[in-house]
């Protein structure tokens, strides 16, 4: 698997990670080496197998429909770098 700069920029954009231009090449070659490691997956004989997403054959436990939470807005808003009037704030978003 080879990777070009555009692909690295695209992934970084999907992941919302700012990349400086001078980082790009070292990151590219880094990622390419990691992706080479994955070539090994193609060697495994797995065509007959179903994917395994969870280690045990577990059933999902459900909870009853009960309101168990109180207002914690003061505590939660205090964790944010910027909050006002009960809202978290972000730079203006235009829809």
């Amino acid at each position: 698997m080879s990777l070009d700069h555009a692909a690295v920029r695209h992934i970084a954009r999907l992941a919302r990670l700012a990349i400086a231009d001078d980082q790009l090449e070292s990151l590219r070659s880094d990622l390419e080496r990691v992706l080479h490691l994955f070539d090994d997956l193609a060697a495994a004989n797995v065509n007959h197998l179903a994917p395994l997403a969870h280690p045990h054959d577990q059933t999902l436990a459900l909870r009853d429909d009960i309101v168990s939470e109180d207002d914690r807005s003061a505590q939660l808003l205090a964790l944010a770098a910027t909050a006002q009037g009960g809202y978290f704030l972000v730079p203006k978003v235009i829809e």
């Binding site: 309101v67 168990s68 939470e69 207002d71 914690r72 939660l76 808003l77 009960g86």
Partner: peptide, 27 residues
Amino acid sequence: ASKLFSGAATAYGADPNTQASLVDCAI
């Protein structure tokens, strides 16, 4: 009465973030 993945209330029209639990806030 409560949310899909948390025990916070779903009532409409509450003051902002007063019905956001730790789960809803992705703590």
